[in-house]
């Protein structure tokens, strides 16, 4: 089974984790247009490549960020979320 490394709990089988999707920044709901909002809600960056994703280590309920190449299914880096950027 593939290994995912939780920044707190260390390397574990990926079955111990939940995938939370790509990290996307929310437009300001007060100022964005309906189309911008719909784009945020539904559209995804579906092409293969390196993505910043939410992952959760389930036994400890630890959410963190994984940078993963979705074309090769290789985890490049994981770290705790510290904000955008």
């Amino acid at each position: 089974m593939k290994i995912m490394t939780c920044p707190v709990n260390g390397p574990r089988a990926i079955s111990e984790f939940a995938y939370g999707g790509e990290i996307r920044s929310m437009p300001d709901p007060a100022t964005c247009s309906d189309d911008e909002w719909a784009d945020y809600v539904f559209n995804r960056n579906g092409s293969p490549g390196v993505k910043r994703e939410w992952w959760c280590h389930l036994p400890s309920n630890t959410w963190f960020v994984a940078e993963r190449d979705t074309a090769r299914d290789v985890v490049l880096r994981t770290y705790l979320y510290e904000g955008e950027g």
Partner: peptide
């Protein structure tokens, strides 16, 4: 729900 609330809390701090 618990997991998703935890995620929001991680995001919103």
């Amino acid at each position: 729900v618990y997991r998703e609330l935890s995620r929001w809390n991680t995001l919103w701090k």
